[in-house]
Design a protein around this nucleic acid. Structure first.
Lengths: 147, 147
DNA sequence: GATCCACCTTTCCATGATGGGAAGGTCAAG
DNA sequence: CTTGACCTTCCCATCATGGAAAGGTGGATC
């Protein structure tokens, strides 16, 4: 099976398949006489594994470890679980950071009338005591910045 | 004021200050006789504005627009609000995607005993019907994959 | 056999925001 | 005058992904 077919079958682009090979995430594929990469069902399984792991947000290096654990019959599930847990923690950390941004911005947007007038609490908050020319800063209802 | 002092005063690294200048996000700084960049209080205000906007997750291009709006006395606050709202939507979209990963992974991790035995639902889910050698796939309690 | 199109190959470049490091100039204190 | 802390520019790396160029292959059609 050529690389294009493997890409269609797994949802991994040809670009990425070649890239994964180049960085050693997957082994070097067998080649046809003309140098075309040939893929087996087993290769597709590996690519689908990678695809699923990527869609769960694992980095390439984490996936490298996961693949090693996958093919190691004697692995301890504890190591997989620990890796997953670390990843979950990292995801939650990112979510918290994004949520804080949303909270702050939502608060500011709620106080912005959003009409044709230039007055804007959002820009005021970003400027925070430093107007572009000569206007005065304007406090709000009490938070939305760092305490 | 030299660039290092400006960096300390604003929390923007010297690297980034030079970068912002190179991409035209901020104007070219005045130079001393020896070619050192000199910063005014007004420059610091702009850098702090950028810093705050970055910490709210706005991209450089969004900040470019925000800066233009900031310095335009005749801006309509509607445009700022719309920009902010688009950004909020984008952040929420990212949060949802990350949360889905967390949900799936948490579910899998909860079902992984995480001891010295090799049996692991997390790897099973990533493999999904394709074991590395010859074992059989193992269904779980009913979701955690695409429907 | 020639042509054509879809596919394959490699290599280089780009993204976005940030940092690291090299090689060299400048300034102030000792 | 030396030392050390600054500054300058330029190049490279990250991470995962894609675009594009330039050229070779495979199979179908004329």
């Amino acid at each position: 099976m050529n690389i294009g077919e493997a890409a269609k079958a797994t949802g991994v682009s040809t670009k990425m398949i070649r890239h994964y090979e180049a960085i050693g995430l997957i082994g070097r594929a067998r080649r046809s006489g003309a140098g075309y990469r040939q893929y087996t069902e087993q290769d597709l399984h590996t690519l689908r594994f990678i695809k699923r792991a990527r869609s769960l947000g694992f980095s390439i290096e984490e996936i490298r470890r996961l693949l090693a654990l996958w093919t190691d019959r004697d692995r301890a599930s504890a190591e997989v679980k620990a890796l997953a847990q670390r990843h979950i923690d990292e995801l939650r950390r990112k979510i918290r950071a994004l949520q804080e941004m949303v909270d702050t911005l939502s608060h500011l947007a709620a106080h912005c009338h959003g009409d044709q007038r230039p007055d804007c609490p959002i820009l005021d908050a970003l400027a925070e005591g430093a107007e572009p020319e000569d206007t005065m800063p304007r406090p709000c209802c009490g938070h939305a910045g760092q305490p």
